[in-house]
Design a protein around this nucleic acid. Structure first.
Length: 463
RNA sequence: GGCGGCGUGGCCGAGUGGUUAGGCAGGGGCCUGCAAAGCCCCGUACUCCGGUUCGAAUCCGGACGCCGCCUCCA
């Protein structure tokens, strides 16, 4: 049984699936008008980890994540760069997938693009107008939030108190400041789609509700995203669905944001770092480990310090993989618990980790237990019980693989000349010619290798 | 103003009413020809003030501080 925090009820509860054994989840994806930033990295890692774990535990997961490829920001950028919306979106979608690949994220099972669903959106908006839950003003079609009796469910506040806090928008024809755009009429030169109520483009909140319901259907299991999407984005998606008589998501869950210098990284503060840039400087796995080591709902500070810390912790894990030469798992493939025979300490480890992860994805505790197992495997091996500890080390690799973290045994390509130096050094050590052995080690290090001794002789790897 | 969260050892970061989180950094030792890796040991933390309790970092109340949402945002 998997339990997860539910944003509507504010507590951890059982994930009750629409269909036993199958989990349908929708993750709000990016608007592709700029390079992905650290916050995108965080939420995609969190939900990639969740998805992998659910799969590991035997669920068949359908994971839908959209690309918003039409939006004011895209239009503005195209205008500024004298380019087209299509070109801007294509360029940054490519950057997006490049970053996702570096982070070792599984591709979603479905990647709906907003521009491919405009017909369905127009249909929905027309129906909302018919039903009287939407209305027209000079610049577009708006949703009337007063038509949804429990509007504010996700915000955790009734409509009245939300309205009290809403900032006044100048010169507004809207009936309520909380009413939101379903459709924006095109101004001259702007991209447009035909619609009976006037040519234009869809609003963001409408895109996601159409794509999620379109692909996953009424009452799909789990809708997730970053905390900052909870309100108004998710509230508004839900409002549209409910207004039209649909059952929307059964569960909602939200991941914590990225902090920089004690403040939330955000568009308005302009304090964001591009993911693309960070990934060019560090091992992307360090970011995954950093995310794993804090709870998915907590904010995390992502700085060179915290990434460096994770990087060094990762080295300890890689050292284990090297020592026992266990195969790397996780990267581009799913790992499933049922594919392994769990026995003895490995079984205890799996069950312990599973207990933590099945209870609201407590990755920090799971990781702590895995690190304990690393120490145990090394200690056992130091006592000479190699095969015994290998089984435990393998379990560690499998479980990290289940979370998408591929531990790396040394599988660097060793060129012929380096190989000869290694053999020569082992020869020198065998005859206790330490001066020569050290000289050969220096030479290997100059070639960029890290040199370590083991029972089987000199081992070299890239740092 | 409304709603929500947080304040833990040098740093990051979990957690439970009483027993070691874990990682990184640091110190000591073991192993090793040396180094690296590894192992063992060490810091004895929980914003402050009250209260409940045999016992609270963990529950309750208050204070202070910080953060988020209520506006585009992951």
């Amino acid at each position: 049984m998997i339990r997860l925090f539910d944003s509507v009820h504010g507590d951890v509860r059982e994930l009750r699936l629409r269909e036993s054994g199958r989990l349908s989840m929708y993750v709000c994806g990016p608007t592709v008008y700029d390079l992905p930033h650290l916050g995108h990295g965080r939420y995609t890692l969190v939900w990639d980890i969740a998805r992998r774990w659910f799969s590991f535990q035997g669920l068949e997961v359908r994971y839908v994540s959209n690309i918003t490829d039409i939006d004011d920001n895209i239009i503005n950028r195209a205008l500024r760069e004298n380019s087209t919306e299509e070109s801007v979106a294509a360029q940054f979608e490519q950057q997006w997938w490049d970053a996702m690949d570096l982070l070792g994220e599984m591709r979603p099972t479905d990647v709906p693009h907003a521009t491919s669903y405009v017909d369905e959106m127009v249909e929905l908006i027309a129906a909302m107008l018919d039903k009287g839950v939407a209305y027209r003003i000079s610049d577009g079609i708006y949703f009337d939030v007063s038509t949804v009796s429990d509007y504010g469910l996700l915000a955790g506040q009734p409509l009245s108190s939300l309205r009290a806090g809403a900032r006044i928008e100048a010169n507004d024809e809207k009936r309520s400041p909380l009413d939101f755009a379903l459709w924006k009429f095109a101004k001259p030169g702007e991209p447009r789609w035909q619609a009976p109520f006037g040519d234009g483009r869809p609003g963001w909140h409408t895109e996601c509700v159409v794509m999620s319901l379109g692909l996953l259907g009424d009452g799909f299991d789990l809708h997730v995203g970053g905390f900052d999407l909870k309100f108004p984005h998710h509230e508004n998606e839900r409002a549209q669905a409910v207004a039209m008589g649909h059952d929307f998501a059964r569960h909602w869950s939200h991941s914590g944001w990225v902090m920089v210098g004690g403040e939330k990284m955000s568009k308005s503060l302009g304090n964001f770092t591009s993911l693309t840039d960070m990934l060019s400087r560090v091992d992307a796995r360090a970011y995954r480990l950093l995310v794993l080591r804090s709870h998915y709902r907590s904010p995390i500070e992502v700085t060179p310090d915290t990434i460096g810390d994770a990087q060094r912790a990762l080295e300890r894990l890689d050292a284990l993989a090297r020592r026992f030469d266990v195969p790397s798992l996780g990267g581009a493939t799913f790992v499933r618990a049922s594919e392994y025979d769990w026995e003895g300490e490995a079984k205890d480890l799996y069950e312990g980790v599973a207990a933590y992860l099945d209870e609201d994805l407590n990755t920090p505790l799971a990781v702590a237990q895995l690190f304990d197992a690393v120490s145990a495997a090394n200690a056992t091996a130091d006592r000479g019980e190699i095969e015994h500890s290998r089984a435990l080390a393998q379990a560690v690799t499998i479980l990290f693989g289940a979370l998408g973290l591929a531990l790396r045994a040394s599988n660097d390509h060793v060129d012929g000349e380096s190989e000869e130096l290694v053999l020569a050094r082992d020869q020198a050590r065998a005859t206790k010619n330490w001066a020569e052995a050290d000289r050969l080690r220096d030479e290997l290090e100059q070639r960029g290798w890290v040199v370590e001794d083991s029972v089987t002789g000199t081992l070299i790897r890239r740092p």
